[in-house]
Design a protein around this nucleic acid. Structure first.
Lengths: 171, 171
DNA sequence: AATGAAATATTCAAAGC
DNA sequence: GCTTTGAATATTTCATT
């Protein structure tokens, strides 16, 4: 439980906003925008990282440019009571799963899956269904995005397997 | 149609990986790691941005630290044929919607919603249901994550409304 | 906590290979 | 297209208020 008291103030919030908009802005730039010296900005950023508010800095990549052109949400149903800990292990076995969570509703878990194409996605799905206590899956393929895609660390996922026939040529 | 030929090579891919891991690494640092001069790295990064492969650099933030402690996926069902363009407008009216897409399956769209708490989430849901042609919604609350949360630009969303009673004190 | 100043690094554009 | 060079900026540490 318990929201410890927030460890940041309005200036920190502005810094977070600035860094979220552009993680490569200089401290001097940010400082100029919010009325603080570069030194002061750096100290606050260090503190925010220390406190776990800012967890990192990442480049955002267009997944399709990296060869990930197929995206789906997959509901997972398990045999018996699904222990979240075991589920987490299963999920980590499949690099195409980019997000996974337990949810309310009928399903035991919801997965976000990225694949190079539909053929690859089918292969992933078969692999997941093979796992010990997975009973069934229901997939919802993403057709189009209604908002600019929220930043996803496209390249923190492994490169699409270059199994011929599956992966686009990355040269 | 058509995947234009990939606009990057193996060195570019390594650069993308490095920047995804830490968007604030210096070009010199990256160059040292992959055997290129800082200048060469910068040129490639500029080209990758130009080409739309790298879309930006962002700080990753722990949503709960910013006061977003409630998360859900919401299936949306519309009256008649839902024109994606109209749906996109609706979605933009609600800052709590952090991702939205059309999907296969029964629903017309799937939304990812972040709220400060369950009370706030209910308010968002009521607001969405009020929109002209939304017929019904089905929500799946996120209980726990099975993978480390993929970077989300927590602060690109507006600050949680500081309506007393809804938003945590950000001081 | 914020500031200012000095030492060290980084970025960026020009020129040559 | 990569490297080197050098000038302009940015970062970081430390002393000061």
């Amino acid at each position: 439980m318990s929201s410890r008291p927030p460890v940041f103030d309005g200036l920190d919030r502005k810094i977070i906003t600035a860094l979220t908009a552009n993680a490569r802005s200089s401290f001097a730039e940010i400082g100029a925008a919010i009325g603080l010296s570069a030194t002061a900005v750096k100290r606050r950023v260090d503190r925010l990282r220390e406190a776990g508010v800012i967890t990192g800095f990442t480049a955002t990549v267009k997944p399709s440019a990296l060869g990930w052109r197929t995206e789906a949400y997959v509901e997972v149903y398990c045999d018996g009571a699904a222990p979240p800990r075991r589920l987490a292990e299963v999920v980590r076995n499949h690099p195409e799963i980019s997000a996974a969570m337990t949810v309310t509703g009928g399903a035991d878990a919801l997965l976000h899956v990225r694949a190079t194409d539909v053929e690859h996605f089918e292969e992933v799905l078969e692999r997941i269904r093979t796992e010990p206590f997975i009973r069934k899956t229901i997939s919802y393929m993403v057709l189009s995005h209604l908002l600019p895609e929220s930043p996803e660390a496209g390249a923190s996922q492994p490169a699409p397997k270059d199994t011929p026939g599956h992966a686009p040529d990355m040269r």
